[in-house]
Amino acid sequence: MKTKFRLKPRAEQKVVRFFLYFLTSVAILVLVFILVVILKNGLPQLSLEFLTKNPAHMGKEGGIFSTIVATIYLTFIALLVATPLGVGTAIYLTEYTFEGKVTRIIRFGAECLAGIPSIIFGLFGFILFVTKLKFGWSILSGGLTLAFMVLPTIIRTSEEAIKSVPAAYRLVSYSLGSTRWQTVTRVVLPSAAPGIVTGVILSIGRSIGETAAVIFTAGSALRLPSSIFSSARTMSVHFYILAREGISMSKAYGTAAVLVIAILLINIVTYYLMSKYISRTSPE
């Protein structure tokens, strides 16, 4: 009879370790590769002028100041709308109802929303905000569209964060005579804050990087936006147009580098703030 081929445990350990190490390296390498390509081509473009001057000649010359402003503006509006909506929904689902048909339907709806391609959100935003509500191509239309796009992420991450708050905290709070709302605001939300903030950060990242949904709703005007009703071009839309229409590859890479660095910075800063917050609320 043939004996089954089998490695010695120690050898098996080695092989598995090597294999997993290899897989991890591939994942990391992809990230490193992207960063290297973008930064290698983009960094030489960066200068104070590039960041502080408005684009000229369709973006062939000048900087990207107006697109940075538009991006910040749009993301800010998106989160201003999506955070209360999303966190509120999550609080309702976890604290104010019992599990049942209604919660399942709401959750299913949110999941579906998450699966819709962003260009569909763009079309929806165009029909509803741009034409129907007559906001035109504007920061407001774009911001609202992005808000709906990131809403499922915020709902889901907030819900997970709220669910992971120990049930004992709620029981104690109620047993001391707190109302539901007091329990939510004083015990549940502070404990869930790191998770909720993580969801918001993810959403910032998605909003900054989103192109399809924005180009339909915020337009692509290069001027510095003067109000939320101005049409504006975000960095990612700018990048897309520069590259797509072959206006200037070097300016496109410069824009991409700013985008990537901005997202990295946001992540690092939040990571730092969160670790500080967590160390303050848990034992040494």
Partner: peptide, 11 residues
């Protein structure tokens, strides 16, 4: 008032 099985101070 109520005291529970496991000590459960808030963080």
């Amino acid at each position: 008032g109520m005291v529970f099985q496991r000590p459960n101070p808030f963080p």
